[in-house]
Nucleic acid binder design. Structure first.
Lengths: 208, 208
DNA sequence: GCTTATAGAGAACTAGCAGTTCTCTACCTC
DNA sequence: GAGGTAGAGAACTGCTAGTTCTCTATAAGC
């Protein structure tokens, strides 16, 4: 029992509460950025955050919940909803913002969270609510503006039509691998979103 | 070393090749049906199939590959492509077939496979190819028939438009939990698919 | 029908991860 | 200053993926 005491880490200044949570989130995101979601382990997160696993499990019931929270933290606040006066440009802007988010750490984290969601209906419901309140809200708002401008018939604004564009983007994210190029987004907007809302893309091609 | 010999299982008739593979697939599907994908372990599969783990690993490099193969096996052969004379009914039929498949064991297996695909781009590519050659092929065929009937402008038949309906169905499968009800499918067809191909649903409502 | 190579059965084994529990002690509150 | 809360670190359990070993049934070649 050769106990070489050395510096006792327990005597270092200790973080608590929100500060510690912040450090744990940072560790999760750094791990994901470095090695991806599937290589993320609770031990590695704890070590990287210089926290104990007990502290992790006091805050979250398991890995899925931890990553879900970390992913929410990593998401940029709700982007300002664009209002350019053209439904085409507004939609394209929203789609581009979404695609850009999915390319970075948030995308990596989302892949992990989605994997959990597939196995766990409660996680799935939570993710669905989040997506609905995020992309859905923005789409609804730019469509309301288009209706007010008289650019779009209000009867066409239904959940099915609203979800078509985002669904194609998400499918591309899930099944595709590389970055989502702009041609894809333009194709979705011009060939799917605008036709569904009765807008002719050709009448809207002022800026990009 | 109290070796009580007992009946040596190794003396039972041994299955080989395709017969054994078949038994392993059956065990995988039974496990998934019984306890879902996340509870599926190689040990349980081996035990259920009365096979050795070595036999499993000689055939497949890991769990993901095994389940992927088992899922393909479980899929019914390509349904006959409907040709009712109405694009609306053809599309609805295809969507209903797809939704029905996703409700059973195939759906459970797909959840597992999708989870793997999210972490592994190669699996993702394989699944994408499969989906494209399945739903995509059927959609393309019924659209070709619609074009031949003069029901639909051939210029409208593009990948983006073709994928819109299936993408909504898949999104519903991934994020939703319960069975996919028919109102959803009708909504997708009437509000998204048909408008994208320039067909008015009202002119097509002969038989459901 | 005999020989030989292949491959299956079963079990023991390693390594790694999730999650729990323990001790010790810093920090906050009263 | 006392007492309670919560963090650090480590030891521990239990489960699973994947490997490797021995023994032997079966198939294929002669």
């Amino acid at each position: 029992m050769t106990v070489v005491p050395g510096p006792d880490h327990r005597k270092l200044p200790r973080r608590r509460g929100a500060v510690l949570s912040r450090a744990i989130f940072d560790a999760v995101l750094a791990e994901i950025a470095e090695s991806g979601y599937s290589a993320l382990t609770m031990d590695r997160v704890a070590e990287r955050a210089r926290a104990s696993k007990a502290s992790l499990y006091r805050r979250w019931p398991g890995r899925a919940a931890l990553v879900l929270d970390a992913a929410y933290e990593a998401m940029p606040g709700p982007d300002a909803v664009p209002n350019t006066g053209s439904l085409r440009l507004d939609t394209l802007t929203v789609m581009r913002q979404g695609a850009r988010q999915l390319e970075g750490i948030v995308g990596q984290a989302m892949r992990g969270v989605l994997g959990e969601a597939l196995q766990n209906p409660e996680v799935a419901a939570e993710v669905r609510e989040f997506a609905r309140g995020n992309a859905g809200r923005m789409m609804r708002e730019i469509l309301a503006n288009a209706v007010n401008r008289g650019e779009c018939d209000p009867d066409l604004v239904t959940d099915f039509r609203i979800e078509a564009g985002p669904a194609l983007l998400r499918q591309r994210f899930i099944f595709g691998s590389g970055p989502i190029d702009d041609d894809f987004l333009v194709g979705v907007v011009d060939q799917v979103v605008l036709p569904l809302f009765g807008v002719d893309p050709k009448n809207n091609r002022r800026g990009t």
